[in-house]
Design a protein around this nucleic acid. Structure first.
Lengths: 111, 111
DNA sequence: GTCTAGGTACGATTGATTTCGTACTCGAGT
DNA sequence: ACTCGAGTACGAAATCAATCGTACCTAGAC
């Protein structure tokens, strides 16, 4: 029941190159802009992002985000939770999440 | 003698995806971190960056940076100048250059 | 135990990106 | 005019990244 947290790099091991390569992909960036815009930092399901790609490819993208140190993945066995590593990212790359949050406002249709 | 400025996108046309893809490459990012760290924003020669790649490949990388809107390229015919579009980048993506500048401090050997 | 929904492992394919070889252009200097 | 240094154009090779098909695993519901 208590999911196991899949490992990612420590705060001090975060590398800008890896992070920027992770954010270069449109799908991964759309995930990150949503996470950055949600200030509650609540855990989210993997398929709450409505990505127009197969589940195998989603697995790949979430792994890239985790290995870049941007998110935590919590493995429950038959499902998975995603959470933004906001404090870590903010401390290592201040201003980065603000850029993504601004992009989310631009990319979200006004309602 | 007065070089012609090669065209890049207007400020409002800068796209985060294009910018992040441009910054994902190590060589292009090393150029950008150097430019971001130099607060005088002086024009620089193309080969003042000591990139360990052929000149054809350098041409390619500088073009990517220009088309992303990050730099201006001034063509003098037999040589070329590079200048950071600091105000444009700062106004469209505030905080981005600060991230690159911080990376320059980390990546520069202490002397 | 069986079934099902969500996720992963592995491999193959496809597409994009980086890189460079060859040939060419341009301007400065002699 | 000739040469030289710096850069570009074009195309090919090589490398890397995104995508998916098939098969498999896991926890929960029945």
């Amino acid at each position: 029941m208590a999911g196991t947290n899949l490992v990612g790099p420590e705060v001090d091991a975060l590398e800008l190159g890896v992070v920027l390569r992770a954010l270069a992909d449109e799908h991964r960036r759309s995930v990150m802009t949503e996470l950055a815009a949600d200030r509650t930092d609540s855990e989210r399901g993997c398929n709450s992002f409505a990505l127009p790609i197969s589940k195998q490819t989603q697995t790949h993208h979430f792994r890239v985000l985790r290995e870049a140190g941007l998110i935590d993945e919590i493995d429950y066995g038959n499902r998975k939770g995603i959470r933004l590593r906001r404090t870590d990212v903010d401390s290592r790359f201040p201003g980065l999440l603000a850029l993504l949050e601004a992009e989310h406002r631009d990319g979200t249709a006004p309602h």
